[in-house]
Design a protein around this nucleic acid. Structure first.
Lengths: 133, 133
DNA sequence: TCATGACAACTACAGATGTAATCATGCAGG
DNA sequence: CCTGCATGATTACATCTGTAGTTGTCATGA
């Protein structure tokens, strides 16, 4: 018979919150980092205390979004969830939820909000050309 | 001196949650609607009770996202927040948070996730042509 | 050796969110 | 006239989120 499943459920792809995302950012820039190094980056931007960063880090560890590696006294944190994985799934979620899975209306919205820079237009044009080839 | 500000703060553009969004959808399709009519649309999809829909409606009213108009015994609900307003600001938020305000990387992500249909590509191409004119 | 300081772990707590049950009230039918 | 259904209002409650304070532990320098 199979081993009785212990409580450490794999939990699937737990969504990470906005505050947690802020903690991931420095890790995506460079890793591994200590809690203090992460705080140096985000605590000023968000006016957080080091304790807050640590709480968020432990939640991220619980969600298997970052890994820890002991380094003597402290821990080094490394992202497990890749940035592209995250931005990709969030983007898909938005398109699905708000635009019925169609990307064109999203694009139209952004255009209407004048959120498209000339650079964006140029890059997208290039991308489109590539895709239709 | 200025009038002492009373407690009814205008509260600004309160964000609406995902569940609340589900209640807005039928209203954007057709309005005004009664709570029951809304439930007929969403309660099956989300496996909700009528009570849940009513709670969400009252939260939306509190956030000034929908308006009520008495109709004898019950209320008729009408959206105040327009769909485009919502999808637009959500889209902007996503682009800002995840892609530093640039839309091109978002589309690159979607392309990579193969979330762009041929129709999307065609529509976007047309729109691009329009925008660069 | 002993106090200090640096960390991670644990605890806290208010507000938002998801999901409803219960309360109150007024109209419609007997 | 009274009672029951329909409907909004009020209350409930668990979980998630944002934001920390407090505790326990160890290593290091006096």
């Amino acid at each position: 018979m199979p081993v009785a499943s212990d409580e450490t459920r794999d939990s699937g792809p737990d969504r990470i919150s906005e505050a947690e995302y802020a903690v991931m950012e420095p890790l995506w820039e460079r890793s591994p980092l200590t809690a203090l190094e992460i705080c140096e980056v985000v605590c000023s931007r968000r006016d957080w205390s080091l304790a807050t960063v640590k709480t968020l880090l432990s939640r991220l560890v619980a969600k298997s979004a970052v890994a820890t590696e002991p380094d003597g006294r402290r821990f080094l944190y490394t992202p497990l969830l890749e940035k592209d994985e995250y931005t990709g799934s969030e983007s898909l979620r938005l398109v699905d939820r708000l635009f019925g899975g169609r990307a064109a209306p999203l694009f139209a919205q952004l255009a209407e909000a004048e959120a498209l820079t000339d650079d964006d237009l140029a890059e997208m044009e290039a991308l489109l050309k590539e895709l239709r080839k």
